[in-house]
Design a protein around this nucleic acid. Sequence first.
DNA 1: TCAACCTCTCAACTAATATTGATATATTGA
DNA 2: TCAATATATCAATATTAGTTGAGAGGTTGA
Lengths: 116, 116
Amino acid sequence: MEEERALAAFAALSQETRLRIVRLLIQAGPEGMAAGAIGEAIGASTSRLSFHLTHLEHAGLIASRRDGRFIIYTAIYPAFSGLIRFLMRDCCQGHPEICAPVVAALDCACDPTEKA
Amino acid sequence: MEEERALAAFAALSQETRLRIVRLLIQAGPEGMAAGAIGEAIGASTSRLSFHLTHLEHAGLIASRRDGRFIIYTAIYPAFSGLIRFLMRDCCQGHPEICAPVVAALDCACDPTEKA
DNA sequence: TCAACCTCTCAACTAATATTGATATATTGA
DNA sequence: TCAATATATCAATATTAGTTGAGAGGTTGA
C-alpha cells in the first residue's frame, strides 16, 4: 500500500526532533552524518536521538551504515520525491497552470542563493 | 516560526482520513468540494469528517467557504509548495544533481498520463 | 584483553490524538 | 415560521506517541 508508506513518512516528519534530523541530513547530502554529530547539532539525548533515528529509518526516509564505531545516517532522496508525487498526483486535471507554483517551488529549493 | 507551520502541516497529513481529504481536494482543483461529498467519497461520519476538516484548516492546508447550505473546501496549493520548499531547502549545497530527481518528481505529478 | 567510546534497547511515565454518539447551529424552500 | 438538510460542537473513551534514565552491545587502540 503506497498510502501506508506516505502516512508513515508524514508521521515521521511531524515531530520536531525528527523534522530537524531530516532537514539536516538533506542538507548534509550523500555523505551523511554520524549519529553523535546529529545529536549535537539538534540537541537531543542519545536515547531520544536513537528512538527518532530508528523511527525515520523504519519510515524509509533515512538509511544507516556503520563506519568503524560510528553509524552514519543519510537521507533517502527518492523517498521524498515519491512522497511529493503521491501527494500531488493528478493535481491539475490536465491544467498544469493550477499546480505550476508547486513545481516552481522546488526549483527554488535547489538554488543555494535563495533562502526565503 | 516556519518550522511550527511545517510540523502542523505534516501532522495534519499523517492521518489516513486527512490525507485522503487532502488528496481528494488537490485533485478536485480550485472549485473544491462540499463537506458532504468529501465524506461520502472517503467514508467518514459527519463528526469525524468535521473534526478532520477543521484540523486541516487550522494547519493551513485547506480553506472553506459557504455556498448556500453547503460548505465548500479547497486545497491551498501554495501551502504545499511552501512545505516542500521548507523540507528541501539547501538540499544540494550547490550541486543540483543531488536533488534533481526530487525536482523531476513534481513534473511527473502534473502529467495526468503518468500514474506510477 | 581492557578501558574508552559510540550507539542502541528497555520499561515506566506522561501527554497528545482519534473515535463515537448525541446534540446544537445555520440555511433553504414551502 | 416549520420541516428538512448540511455541517459543527461537545464530552467520554480508547489509542497512540514521546521522554526519561538506566543499562547493554559492539568497536577501537593500546
